[in-house]
């Protein structure tokens, strides 16, 4: 691989593909983006994401690299697309699950415990409803669809061609490497990639205002509510070991809506704007990989951490082809 890379192809306009295209463009590489749909949209699982940039909260169940690499995300997205809200994350537990809050605190860092008054001061609509909460002040969130669209527009404005079509067979000396960021669509090439189904809802509830994402600790589903502004909320997300992308179950709907209702009864009157189902691409340890096979380089397995890890993955992949260090998430091709 030459030290001065002049051109490259990126497959996919999901969060990984667009972040990598932006990072390569910033470093002076002439990028061509190719996507089956030609633009960010519902065929990419990042379209359905929560958009939480919450590396410390994720530390409860994710491994160390997610916490560390995820801390690059908020700054990167602010520079690359704008629209990052730095308001922290509030973590709450309902009724009989209150003990879960202590366990969550034990397994995470960069938080402080709030009492009744402080919760009310942060989120007036939750005043008096909870005795204790964990506040992760350094965390942030964004609107995934607005962010992907803004990033696409900035790339287009910078002269990056974004083409509609299928992947070319491989890279060439002149065209440079092909970065495959197609997520679960690359499954036929990557035998150890699997789908983890997620279900989400978008609600309109003008009676409730929240300034920041709220996580509800629940023994089975880690439920969160992310404010999108104008009384709109994203509610997610289940995690089911299945690559199925089409169908939500009554049980999932019931569990998500029940949790929202428990957070605030006004959610009982919310309008259901959207029901989304998709599958996240994941490797067996749920950690992302950069994998080279011939002239094709795969960025995949971002699992439920697309917006959180895409900046670090893009940085490392760009380093790889511009003479920088070997990425820590690089793995040997076992195909």
């Amino acid at each position: 691989m030459p030290d001065r890379l002049t051109s490259a192809t990126v497959l996919g306009t999901g969060v990984a593909g667009l972040a990598l295209a932006a990072e390569l463009t910033r470093r002076g590489v002439g990028v061509t983006v190719i996507d089956r749909a030609g633009a960010p949209g519902p065929s990419a699982c990042s379209w359905w994401a929560g958009g939480m940039l919450a590396p410390f909260c994720e530390g409860e169940s994710a491994e160390e690299p997610v916490v560390r690499l995820g801390q690059e995300a908020a700054g990167w997205w602010e520079r690359a697309a704008g629209g990052v809200a730095r308001a922290g994350t509030l973590v709450l537990a309902l009724g009989r699950d209150r003990g879960e809050l202590d366990r969550f605190a034990r397994r995470t860092t960069a938080h402080r415990m709030l009492g009744r008054e402080e919760i009310g001061a942060l989120e007036p609509d939750l005043a008096g409803r909870f005795e204790r909460a964990l506040f992760f002040e350094e965390e942030a969130h964004l609107d995934p669809r607005a962010t992907l669209t803004a990033l696409r527009d900035r790339l287009a404005a910078a002269g990056v061609p974004i083409l509609t079509g299928e992947a070319p067979p491989g890279g060439s000396a002149e065209a440079g490497p092909v970065f495959d960021c197609r997520g679960l669509a690359a499954r036929d090439d990557l035998a150890d990639l699997r789908g983890v189904k997620g279900e989400m809802l978008v609600l309109r509830c003008p009676d409730v205002a929240l300034a920041r994402p709220v996580r509800l600790l629940h023994p089975r589903i880690p439920l969160y509510i992310v404010p999108r502004g104008d009384g709109v909320f994203m509610l997610g997300a289940t995690m089911i070991e299945s690559g199925e992308r089409g169908r939500i179950t009554a049980r999932s709907l019931l569990e998500m809506l029940t949790a929202a209702y428990a957070l605030h009864p006004a959610f009982g009157e919310a309008e259901v704007l959207e029901i989304g189902v998709d599958a996240r691409p994941a490797f067996p340890d749920n950690l992302p990989r950069i994998r080279r096979r011939g002239s094709r380089i795969y960025l995949n397995g971002l699992y439920r951490h697309g917006f959180l890890l895409a900046p670090a993955l893009a940085r490392m992949a760009a380093d790889l082809v511009t003479g920088g260090p070997r990425p820590e998430v690089m793995d040997e091709d076992r195909a």
């Binding site: 789908g195 189904k197 089911i240 070991e241 199925e244 067996p284």
Partner: peptide
């Protein structure tokens, strides 16, 4: 019930 999701979709988990 928890993992199937119907048909082939859950088969990755069964393989595992």
């Amino acid at each position: 019930r928890r993992e199937s999701g119907g048909g082939r979709a859950g088969s990755d988990f069964w393989t595992l």
